[in-house]
């Protein structure tokens, strides 16, 4: 349903969509029902000529039910949402599948630097390819990313992956994704990072293995000319906050 508007291009994107729909359905149903009951009661007990108002203390069991039943329903549905959310959280944020490749994502005012591992598939070697505002990945490959910031707080957001992760200066935050379709999609910063925050878009290019190999080949020569971005120096901190 959501992917009709924003494609779901990662393995975990459909699960996040399902969670959003579940929360929307639960909250929407009970929210609408509460409004219907509320408006119904207003209409039922509206002022009538000759009818005196009555003070209701809410102490009788039949009166308490109006509070206690929604209260227990809220707890039950909260528990449902919590269980479903933890399952998705565990998959996206706590699991770290063995990556096929690792890319480095460096945020700074107001640009994204991406360090690709090049033909050897290993970062911090001479064939690394550094790009500004353009990340190239292969469809159906598992990627680990090392995210850091050179200046202030940023947030690495890839809407089609349903991925969003804060970038914090002084920390290297690791995460993962596995694309499920080819194409070019938006990357954006989703943490106010200064006057140019709104002007900090980038693109992710998801390619087939052949397309990516051609891209690597074409850019390896350029990488040899332009010095690669220095590796972030802070101590790795493991999982995502």
């Amino acid at each position: 349903m959501i992917d009709h508007y924003v494609p779901a291009a990662s393995t975990f994107a459909p699960h996040i969509d399902d969670l959003i729909i579940l929360i929307g359905a639960v909250v929407g149903f009970w929210g609408l029902l509460a409004e219907v009951v509320f408006i119904g009661l207003i209409l039922k007990f509206k002022a009538e000529p000759g009818v005196k108002s009555k003070y209701v203390s809410g102490e009788l069991p039949k009166e308490k039910r109006w509070v206690s039943i929604p209260h227990y329903a809220t707890l039950a549905f909260d528990l449902l949402i919590l269980v479903m959310a933890l399952r998705v959280w565990h998959e996206v944020k706590l699991e770290m599948p063995k990556p096929d490749e690792t890319v480095r994502v460096i945020a700074q005012q107001w640009a994204w630097t991406f360090v690709h591992p090049g033909a050897d598939g290993i970062l911090d070697t001479s064939d690394d390819i550094t790009t500004i505002d353009e990340l190239h990945v292969v469809n159906d490959k598992t990627y680990q990313f090392e995210l850091t910031s050179r200046d202030v707080l940023h947030s690495f957001s890839v809407p089609v992956f349903r991925l969003k992760q804060d970038a914090i200066p002084g920390r290297i935050i690791k995460g993962w994704f596995k694309p499920t379709m080819t194409g070019q999609f938006d990357i954006q910063c989703t943490e106010i990072c200064g006057i140019g925050h709104g002007l900090m878009p980038a693109r992710i290019v998801i390619e087939t293995a052949d397309q990516h190999a051609n891209w690597v080949k074409a850019n390896t020569a350029l990488a040899a000319v332009a010095p690669a971005a220095p590796a972030p120096t802070p101590t790795p901190t493991g999982g995502m906050p």
Partner: peptide, 11 residues
């Protein structure tokens, strides 16, 4: 990537 001021001016 190391031209921080240039990267600010670019957008």
């Amino acid at each position: 990537p190391d031209d921080a001021e240039g990267l600010r001016m670019r957008p």
